[in-house]
Design a protein around this nucleic acid. Structure first.
Lengths: 150, 150
DNA sequence: TTTATACTTGACAAGAATAGTAGGGTATGG
DNA sequence: CCATACCCTACTATTCTTGTCAAGTATAAA
């Protein structure tokens, strides 16, 4: 019942991009360095996000990635669903037909109700937070650090 | 972000035991047969639940397992925590000191807030349902089937 | 036009976790 | 005393995770 590093790294990368949304393309290596993530691994994650329409890429020198939508329009849930494949805690309650595996055991169906409630709660939380929220928080942190330093 | 079969099998087994809470010990093989789970595998799960004080065992002929507490006193969360080890979606927000791994990345801390909200939501759902609830549901299902069959 | 930069893609691989199997040992009711 | 059923440990096959590596392609700038 753990999120993989795909989601946690991916979210961190996306927050970085949200913080620099108005500054043009940011390169993978910049993010990788700042977040201490392997460049090759991060490449895979960002590419996947690009294919799903959350990022746009610019090739060549000074290239990099840019959010494809405004930070407010991208939720944590969007990112996790792309990178984790699915947010459902068990396959029988996923809403992605491709992954769905039904079960015909009688008491499993009793359990199913709990898993459905759980899946709803998870989605509700993940979709309640967007990149703008997180970027603002990150910005506040920086401001706070400055206050302390004087 | 998936629960393992440990939790799903374990919960199904526990619901079976809740349904027969007043009928003395139920053997592993009975449950295994009914739920179509390997006996050896189920043994491991029930033993672990016993060590954590959720089950009591009776050895010898007519032996088996009995819930150690009233069904109402055992939540789905209790079972998942025993079998899954932990319900937290990432290690940095677990409340089990043994598993905790902290991170010192700046933007990770931004993400941490989301993971904490998620961990809370998960626990809230899992602890809101107990075995009595599920047993009652299972009982209703049976009654409903009977109604249909006449 | 050349070159360095940076994204693109696919294959591969070590390590951990999952989902079991196997096979002995121990207690106990009949 | 013996069949039943729990008890315990070790082992294994498979899958998933977490990367690495190599060989591209596109493009801005010199």
């Amino acid at each position: 019942m753990k999120l993989s590093t795909k989601s946690t790294y991916g979210l961190r990368a996306m927050v970085n991009l949200a913080l620099k949304y108005d500054e043009g393309a940011i390169s993978i290596s910049d993010i990788a360095k700042k977040e201490d993530i392997s460049v090759s691994y991060l490449e895979q994650l960002l590419n996947r996000l690009r294919h799903k329409g959350m990022l746009e890429s610019v090739r060549g020198p000074n290239g990099g990635y840019v959010l494809a939508k405004r930070p407010k329009k991208i939720t944590v849930g969007d990112i996790v669903r792309v990178l984790e494949g699915d947010t459902a805690p068990v396959y029988c309650v996923t809403n992605q037909a491709r992954l769905k595996r039904s079960c015909r055991r009688s008491t499993t169906c009793v359990a199913k109700g709990v898993w459905e409630k759980l899946a709803d709660a998870i989605d509700r939380v993940l979709d309640s937070v967007n990149l703008e929220d997180l970027a603002r928080q990150a910005g506040d942190e920086v401001g706070h650090e400055k206050d302390i330093s004087r």
